[in-house]
Design a protein around this nucleic acid. Structure first.
Length: 420
DNA sequence: CCAACCGGGGTCTGCCATAGTA
DNA sequence: TACTATGGCAGACCCCGGTTGG
C-alpha cells in the first residue's frame, strides 16, 4: 500500500503547486462543465500528474502499481480522462488535446488517421483511460502506442466495456500477459467489437459444441478474431463442418469439428464459402471418395482449408506444371500431392526453388516424390545440409535423402557418424 | 541401433467494403 | 451523413520427436 500512499502524496503536492484552473485546463476538461466538480480524479487527469504517475507505474514493484491503477480506475465513477466540449471551438480544442495525448503516448498519428479518420472527429475519446488500463495489465507504453496507431477505435472504448471484455478473455486465458501479447499482435481482434454479450455467447456456444477450454485457448491465441465474430457467423461455420462430417459418413460431428479445429484453428475466421470451395476442389481434383476425403481433411489437408481458393488452384497448377516438366505423369503428381498436401501450402516460387535446389544436386525427381517431406526444410537448410553431406562423402543420388529434413539433433548425430 | 512413418507445434494480420445506426 | 460494426479477403513454412518394425 505504500506506493499507493506515495501516489496520493504526489497528487496532493502537485495540486498544491498548481492552481486549480491550470490543472483544469491541463486536464483538457470542458469549459462547459463546472469547475466545482473538480476533485481528485480530475486532478489525476492532468498530463503533468500523469507523467508522475507513469514514472511510478514503470517502477519495480509492478504488482502494487497494477493494484493501484486498478483501484484508481475502479473508483472512477465517471470517465476521468474523457474529453467533452460543446461550444463552437470545442471541437478544435478537443482535437488538439486528443492529438497531444496521442503524441505523448507515441502514437503514429498519420497512420491512425488514415486507418480510422472518424475517431479523430469524435467529441469524446478515452485514450488516457485506455493507457492506464493497459499499463495496469502489464502492457509496455510502446505496445499501447502501437495498438492505438494500428487500431485507433480502441480509444473510444469505455473502462467498463474494456474491463468486461478483458474479464471474458481471462475466462479463457490464464494470465493478463498472454492477452497483452495477443493485443500486441492483433489489436483489432480485441477492440473491433464492443459487443461483450456476443463475446460471452460465443464462448458459451463454442464450449457447448464440445470444444474444450484448451481448444478455446488455442483459438484465442491463434485466431482471436473468432471471438469477435457474431455468434451467428460462428454457428454457420460449426454447423457447416458438422454437415460436412455427416455427408462424408463421419457419424460423430462433434468429434469431427474438434479434429478440424485442432488441426487448423484458423477455420473459424474464414468464410464457409472459402472452406467449402477448398473441400470441393480437393474432392474433384483428386477424385476422392468420402473416406479418402475425410482422411485428407482430418489430416494434413486441414491445413489447406483456410487458404484462398485462387491460391490453392494457382499452386496446384504450378506443382503440376513443374512436375510435368520433370517428366512426371498426372498420376504421380496426384499421388505426390495427396501424400504431401503441404506442397500446396508452399508458395509457387518456394516450391520451384526447393525442387530446383535438389535437382541441381543430382537428386532425381522420383527421389523427391518418394521423400516429399524433404520439402519441409527451408532452402537454406537444404543447401547447407547438402553441402555438408557432399563434403562428408555422402552420395545423395543413391542414398536416402530424408535426412535433409530430420530434426537438427538427429541430423547432427548422423553427420557426426559420417565423419562430417 | 537405425530410420521410416506419422503427426504435432508455432503461427495469422491488416486492410477494404458495406450494411446498419445514431 | 458520418461513423461503427462486421464480413471477407490475400498472404504464405519450418522444425521436431515419438513410435515402430526391421
Amino acid at each position: 500500500m505504500r506506493d499507493l500512499t506515495t501516489l496520493f502524496c504526489q497528487v496532493s503536492s502537485i495540486s498544491v503547486l498548481m492552481s486549480p484552473l491550470s490543472i483544469w485546463k491541463r486536464a483538457g476538461l470542458s469549459c462547459a462543465s463546472h469547475p466545482k466538480s473538480f476533485d481528485f480524479l480530475t486532478i489525476m487527469a492532468s498530463r503533468n500528474l500523469w507523467n508522475v504517475s507513469s514514472n511510478i507505474l514503470f517502477g519495480s514493484r509492478c504488482w502494487i502499481i497494477q493494484f493501484s491503477a486498478e483501484i484508481f480506475l475502479k473508483t472512477a465513477s465517471f470517465r476521468p480522462f474523457g474529453v467533452k466540449c460543446d461550444n463552437k471551438n470545442g471541437k478544435s480544442l478537443k482535437n488538439k488535446d486528443l492529438l497531444n495525448n496521442l503524441l505523448t503516448l507515441g502514437v503514429d498519428i498519420d497512420k491512425a488517421k488514415k486507418r480510422q479518420p472518424g475517431v479523430f472527429n469524435r467529441m469524446e475519446t478515452n485514450e488516457q483511460t485506455l493507457k492506464i488500463f493497459l499499463l495496469s495489465k502489464g502492457a509496455r507504453k510502446e505496445v499501447i502506442a502501437s495498438i492505438i496507431s494500428r487500431y485507433p477505435r480502441a480509444i473510444t472504448r469505455t473502462l467498463e466495456s474494456l474491463s468486461k471484455r478483458w474479464e471474458l478473455w481471462r475466462t479463457i486465458m490464464t494470465s493478463d500477459l498472454e492477452i497483452v501479447n495477443i493485443l500486441e499482435r492483433s489489436p483489432e481482434s480485441f477492440f473491433r467489437s464492443n459487443n461483450n454479450l456476443n463475446l460471452e455467447n460465443n464462448i458459451k456456444y463454442l464450449l457447448s459444441v464440445g470444444l474444450t477450454r484448451d481448444c478455446l485457448c488455442r483459438l484465442l491465441t491463434n485466431a482471436p478474431r473468432t471471438f469477435s465474430n457474431t455468434l451467428d457467423l460462428n454457428k454457420q461455420m460449426i454447423e457447416f463442418l458438422q454437415e460436412v462430417s455427416l455427408s462424408l459418413g463421419h457419424n460423430e460431428p462433434i468429434d469431427f469439428v474438434q479434429k478440424i479445429i485442432s488441426k487448423n484453428p484458423f477455420i473459424l475466421i474464414q468464410s464457409t464459402k472459402r472452406v467449402k470451395t477448398n473441400i470441393e476442389f480437393l474432392q474433384s481434383t483428386f477424385n476422392l471418395n468420402k473416406e479418402e476425403l475425410l482422411l485428407l481433411i482430418c489430416g494434413r489437408g486441414a491445413l489447406l482449408l483456410d487458404l484462398s481458393n485462387d491460391y490453392v488452384k494457382r499452386n496446384y497448377t504450378n506443382i503440376k506444371e513443374k512436375l510435368f516438366s520433370l517428366g512426371c505423369t498426372n498420376e504421380e503428381v496426384q499421388k505426390f500431392v495427396l501424400s504431401y498436401p503441404d506442397a500446396i501450402f508452399l508458395s509457387y516460387k518456394k516450391f520451384n526453388d526447393k525442387i530446383d535446389c535438389l535437382i541441381e544436386e543430382k537428386i532425381s525427381i522420383s527421389q523427391i516424390i518418394k521423400s516429399a517431406q524433404v520439402l519441409d526444410s527451408s532452402i537454406s537448410t537444404l543447401k547447407s545440409r547438402i553441402k555438408q553431406l557432399v563434403n562428408a562423402g555422402y552420395n545423395l543420388s543413391t542414398s536416402n535423402i530424408l535426412l535433409l529434413s530430420w530434426s537438427q539433433k538427429r541430423y547432427k548425430a548422423k553427420l557426426k557418424k559420417l565423419g562430417g
